[in-house]
Design a protein around this nucleic acid. Structure first.
Lengths: 226, 226
DNA sequence: CCCCGTTGTAATACATCTGTCACCAACGTC
DNA sequence: GACGTTGGTGACAGATGTATTACAACGGGG
């Protein structure tokens, strides 16, 4: 079992992340400031660290740098969390030694996927990327390509995420709030009707395969064959 | 149905907020000072608290801190209201444990959206996977699909909820008022005979399986095999 | 700095659902 | 068996939820 250390001062966010990672079967350690974070990293040797860029007292960047200086902790991959406003250069993050980079607000799905992806890189045998297939529809996660009988379909970011959210929970109904949370992020502020619009766009682009997306009046949407 | 506690000393603003949240279908509690606010939070356990930063006697910040100290109330998300002039640092608000932050003057739309957004965070990601089976009848909650021997049955929202209300309390008689409460919501006002109509529709759609719904003359309805 | 693709929101159009009512059937009591 | 009460049923207008379209704001790339 992989252990993940979360260094995040906002308890709610930390708890949320912890909850979802635990659900995925990871062992989770949580601390709320940089100093404890460094100590935990040293003593516990987690397999991955999720680090908030903005921490009280000690900046996340400092923590990252310090971790990368010590031989013992340098090998541990780090995923950085940043608020959108902070807008640090992606390159700067990587230069400091972060292995990946998630901008708040992020969906739980996104984070979990990144965690998995980062951990996979350090695994001996590299499991090939997943491909989801539903009737005439194919989604190649690794190549980020969606195909129907009519060939390749060009989707925008939102459309792709929305399609994925539906396809990954094949048959399951998801209401608009759940879709908002999964596609737009947990703290998105906006109209639930926005989902409708994007569903329409998605259906149009998918052509015949658009029929796979069913409306469940009063509840939400689901993807299903037939 | 979600309950929201408003702690705001200016009656006009409190009423305005309450009005719009009620329109959205929330149950609203209103108090006008911090002490009552704390008490209500403890006794009523609302799903969300909207807290004015400036309160007479006790500062909103104190209320927030106190709420976050008690285990029982710590989990309740808080949206802070602040006047523009107050210009407290956003970070300070979050550090005190506020989950979101709205600056007066705010539009009703904005507030409602934020409320929804915050509540969304605490909602479960997916509908639980549960299948109810009664004789030839099967209700798949996750997929939102009802099946009988004749195959899949298309039900409307009300019909589906009504069926669920009966199936979840298998064998127990429910009178029309109870059904109204369970299916239509606690504050629904309307004719109890409406239930009859929907029972009829449901029986028709279910075909043979419609016989599972028994009329108990003078009392109500129940679902039962045989 | 402009252009164009993307995205959120609002307005409108559309389809379906839903509550009520009127009337009829079933039931049970006397 | 007649009568009062309770439940079943079908019709219909208004309510509700969704699809579609249009548009403006935004942001990235050239």
């Amino acid at each position: 079992m992989k252990a993940i250390l979360i260094i995040e001062d906002e308890h709610d966010i930390a708890d949320l992340i912890a909850f979802h990672l635990k659900k995925e079967g990871y062992r989770v350690l949580t601390v709320h400031d940089g100093t404890s974070g460094l100590e935990m990293a040293r003593t516990q040797s987690p397999d991955l660290i999720i680090l908030d860029l903005m921490l009280p007292g000690m900046m996340g960047t400092d923590v990252c740098r310090t971790l990368k200086q010590s031989v013992k902790t340098a090998v541990i991959p780090i995923i950085m969390l940043t608020a959108k406003g902070e807008e640090i250069d992606r390159v700067v993050g990587f230069e400091m030694g972060a292995d990946d980079y998630v901008v708040k607000p992020f969906s739980n799905r996104e984070l979990v996927l990144r965690v998995r992806s980062v951990l996979r890189r350090s695994e001996p045998e590299y499991i090939e990327e997943k491909i989801i297939s539903v009737g005439p529809l194919t989604i190649d996660l690794g190549r980020h390509v969606v195909t129907t009988r009519d060939g390749e379909i060009a989707l925008t970011t939102i459309e792709y995420k929305l399609l994925l959210a539906l396809a990954e929970r094949l048959g399951r109904v998801q209401n608009r709030d759940q879709l908002l949370k999964n596609v737009w992020g947990y703290n998105y502020v906006g109209d639930t009707r926005t989902v409708d619009t994007h569903i329409t766009r998605l259906r149009t682009k998918l052509g015949d395969a658009g029929d796979l997306i069913k409306t469940v009046r009063g509840f939400g949407y689901k993807m299903e064959e037939g």
